[in-house]
Design a protein around this nucleic acid. Sequence first.
DNA 1: CGCGCGATTGAGTAATTTCAAATCTAGTGG
DNA 2: CCACTAGATTTGAAATTACTCAATCGCGCG
Lengths: 187, 187
Amino acid sequence: MSLRLRKHIEEIITLTDAEFDYILPHFELKKFRKHQFVVQEGNFVDQEYFVLEGLLKSTYLNDDGKEHILQFSMENWWVTDYQAFYYHEKATLNIDCIEDVTVLVLTDFNKNKLCTEMHKMEHFFRIKTNMGYVGLQQRILTFLKFDARSRYKHLIEKYPQLYQRVPKTLMASYLGVSRETLSRFSA
Amino acid sequence: MSLRLRKHIEEIITLTDAEFDYILPHFELKKFRKHQFVVQEGNFVDQEYFVLEGLLKSTYLNDDGKEHILQFSMENWWVTDYQAFYYHEKATLNIDCIEDVTVLVLTDFNKNKLCTEMHKMEHFFRIKTNMGYVGLQQRILTFLKFDARSRYKHLIEKYPQLYQRVPKTLMASYLGVSRETLSRFSA
DNA sequence: CGCGCGATTGAGTAATTTCAAATCTAGTGG
DNA sequence: CCACTAGATTTGAAATTACTCAATCGCGCG
């Protein structure tokens, strides 16, 4: 199971067995059930999660009760409320499980420890957010250059798994479209 | 002039005089005129820019010739086509100057050198993208939770300088609204 | 069998776009 | 100082797109 983490890290840096043995104990294995909350609005957030198995959504709840999906997170993705995590603020997001989920938990303390004691890991995390940054820019561009229908088409092409794993209502909320409108696209 | 860079870095880490003296030569001062291109679609990108003075826009050009603004960059912002820069691909963005601009140029080579030779600087850059990442998430949320009018209001509140410095047409393009629609909001 | 959730459909309404034209403004040369 | 021009902004009207609200459909599961 932890092999998956090692493989993930080694996509960016190389590790000796000894190094990985040092790294691994900084993580804790944890399971969540479908519908369970991993991060809840209003709470402080001192953990980041690496998804081994399952699917989660990060959502923002409007004043009028509408749920907007900022992100889906599946296998090999990192997730938490990063604003809360990095700035030590209360969460504004809810993160909950669309399926049963297995994660590796990395606390703020352990992440800093890893980054301080092991330059390589700080490098890993820098490259990792860089990639995340580019991904978010791409997402923003989809809002600018595509209308709702094209955004939907583009999403299905990019993440065909999603189409199988999540109800359309949620895809609509990720795309910023009403589920009725999205439904009419299929036709 | 370089003091500005030092202050910027020291918002995140602390530097001795010696350390900064080591860092600074990795950057090169460069000036661009209004309307001049800093990054051009189709070219490889091996530089990142720290803005000392002036204002730029990063734009994506649609097939049908429509220009979408991914980002404005002003004093103390870092900018380049990050997808191209990080992945060594050809630029898909154009970055050009809305005003005369002074930047500090950091090449890919020098950035890696800095990060490798000086753990502290790798830390700085990691924290910096982390902050950028959160900023982009916020931007995505504005597309999900706000309609065009609210996005405009929100933008003006967050960056009042922009309202003074850039034509409304460009703000419209940043918000994903036609300039005509945006014009009607003022009323 | 019937409940409940998700997806679909219909009708009316609201928001935004497009295209075209009019207006405004700052900078330039005479 | 004034006329002129290019760029930016505004306005109008019709067409399009997406939203809301309400009703219906379809299906898996207890």
